[in-house]
Write a protein that binds this DNA or RNA. Structure first.
Lengths: 166, 166
DNA sequence: GGCAGATATTTTAGGTTTAAACTATCTCCC
DNA sequence: GGGAGATAGTTTAAACCTAAAATATCTGCC
């Protein structure tokens, strides 16, 4: 998938533009592979999807207080519209319920008892899949990878949309 | 987006199942953030999409021989059906053309002159965006990240679907 | 009190993805 | 030659995503 490197490396420490590009391509490949594998297992074993699982996961962490839909949207990195659709599906399946809140614009949702049970089973399986997929990474490598990804995330956040548009 | 770590770490070197999970969540967050930023720029600056760019990119690397659609599908990690749709859009825009091949099941495609020009402009911009997004990573960090992501990729490939199904 | 602008969500229109079923073509082997 | 099964691609139905417009509610200021 990667052509043989044909251009000789420049001498010295001049920033090599291609390096970031290569890191990004590898990052994307890894993320895509994991997503596909996990999505297939969720479909086969639980007849559900990854976005639905992510939604339930956010609510599970939030506890009985639940979360406003907008908060879920920010956590999942998807638009409000997507969250509206997911929420109505999960509610139809009885996995989440709506809470009243003082501000009537806000729709706060939380897991039902059924939702908690289903999520617990899915989360257990999910953790096992991820562990199997990353099994060849030593603890120290995983640690190091986590640190570098944190730095990457900070670099991404520091770069504003305006700066990028340049 | 990440709750404060509330459970004390277990003693010793017992493999911590949560570690893989945390690596995966960070990986996914980084990939999603980059994808969203880049997709927005492609839309605003070139009125195109990331999958279309990826398609053109594969053809650009392939040269005048072009590629069978199935090959593109494997390179982009998407299904044949998705590639069919992308190809018909790109052909309608005059960016790619179909080549005859001995095996008449195979549809081989390559860039047109227009496609090459458009791709060159997009690739230049794309490289700049990625460079800006990853700018805070030192060369040595990028290097290290690339190595770890390669190991990760190999770990993912080694884990067969059957193994995962458990 | 009431209106202007901010905020939360839903709706809409269009594009993407997938898996599975289907069509077309080729290859192998009798 | 002629079928059985493999292979390449297209179509279809359903889920998800986005951006932008629309709706509902709140907040602050006159």
């Amino acid at each position: 998938m990667e052509p043989a490197l044909s251009l000789p490396d420049k001498l010295g420490g001049a920033p090599d533009g291609k390096r970031s590009l290569r890191v990004w391509l590898r990052l994307l490949t890894c993320a895509s592979m994991v997503e596909r594998r996990i999505a297939a297992r969720f479909r086969d074993d639980f007849e559900t999807t990854l976005p639905r699982f992510d939604f339930l996961s956010a609510l599970d962490r939030a506890g009985p207080e639940g979360l406003p839909l907008g908060e879920v949207s920010r956590m999942l990195l998807v638009t409000n519209g997507a969250v509206t659709g997911l929420a109505s599906g999960l509610k139809a399946d009885g996995l989440i319920e709506t809470l009243d809140s003082a501000d009537r614009r806000v729709r706060r949702v939380r897991l039902t008892a059924l939702g908690r049970d289903r999520f617990a089973a899915m989360a257990r399986a999910h953790e096992g899949w991820i562990e199997a997929l990353f099994a060849d990474l030593a603890d120290s490598e995983a640690e190091q990878l986590m640190i570098l990804l944190d730095r990457t995330k900070r670099s991404l956040q520091r770069t504003t949309p305006e700066e990028l548009a340049g």
